[in-house]
Each structure stands twice: as structure tokens, then as C-alpha cells.
Amino acid sequence: MIKIAFIILSLISIFSALMVISRKNPVASVLWLVFHFFGIAGLYVLLGAHFLAAVQIIVYAGAIMVLFLFVVMMLNLNLVNNEKRGKIIGKSIGAVVSGLVLVLFTYSIRTTKWNELFFNQVTDQEWGTAVKLGSLLFSNWLVPFQIVGILLFAAVIGVVALMKRKITRKVENGIVITQEEDVA
């Protein structure tokens, strides 16, 4: 039963991942990526990581991809430049990066002991629940957890500092004039 579910979810994930990189319309790509995240979340559930699955959908599908979709819709990416120079540079960067990723993946796939990993390998069915994960995060991994918190906090402050605008109001001839200017 779990094997069947695993195969279905993997096919969904792989198929939608292929659709993400092969669609011409960026909006379609974003939607396929959302679909892909659902497949991945399903795989997490199969591994017993329920909390991770829920957070995957809340954070990635529910928040980050919405932002992506906003950007893609607003930019109307059909107008992306078709200059040859940009294409060559872009392609060569892409080739280098994907080559490195290929090396990384080949290495990790070759060195992983698949037989030990797959199917019935989860001895503790509860390991991925919110309770277990929470108590681990607040005991063994407290310091890394706090550091991640500080990192995110710094990012938030950075965003506020970048977006902060100075608003000046003055009255001229009985009309209120507001002016905005960037501080950063």
C-alpha cells in the first residue's frame, strides 16, 4: 500500500517538476511548481514527517509561491530581452551550475545506501510529529534554532530598512502636499 502511494506521489513530483522547466508561460510554471510541492509534501507524510509536510505547504505553496506568482503576473515576462549576448552568458552560467548540480547529485545518489533507506525504514512512526520535533528543537538543537531566528530577524530588519521611505507633508496654499523619498 505504502509502495503504491510512494510510486504515485513520486510520479506526480517528477512529472510536475518536468512541467515546471518545460512550460513557456511562467504562470504555468509557477502553478506546476505548487503542484510539485504537494507531491513532495505527500512524500514527507509517507516518511512520517507530518509537521514538515504541513509547513512545506504553508510556507512554500502558500506564501513563497504566491509571491512568485505576484511578481510573474505583474512583470508580464513575455517581454524578457532576446539579445544574443545575454542568451550566451545565461546559457553558459546555466551549464556550469547544472553541471555542478549533476556532479553533486551523482555523488549523493551513488553513496546513499538505498536499501537501508527505503520502505519500512522508519522505526519510530512519531518522529516527525510536531511534539517530537518541537522537543528536539528546544533541547538538542536550541542554539542553532536561535541562530536561525536571529538570521531571519536580521533579514526582516533589512527589508524594513530598504523599504523605508521618508514622508514629508507640507501645506502650500491650503493644499497638503506629501512627498516620499527613499532613505536607503
Binding site: 505548487v34 507530518h50 509547513v55 504566491v66
Partner: peptide, 25 residues
């Protein structure tokens, strides 16, 4: 009955945005 029931609800509530956004766009 999930042990992450409330998170599940918020996960799918956040998916509801897509229908509205796509419909509008």
C-alpha cells in the same frame, strides 16, 4: 484526524489565494 490538524487547515486556507489571484489575472 491529523496530529497536525490545525496546520493542515492553515495550509489549505493559504492555498485558497490561488483561485482568487488566477481568476483576477
Amino acid at each position: 484526524d491529523l496530529n497536525v490538524g490545525i496546520l493542515f487547515i492553515f495550509a489549505f486556507a493559504s492555498i485558497g489565494v490561488y483561485g482568487v489571484m488566477l481568476g483576477g489575472w
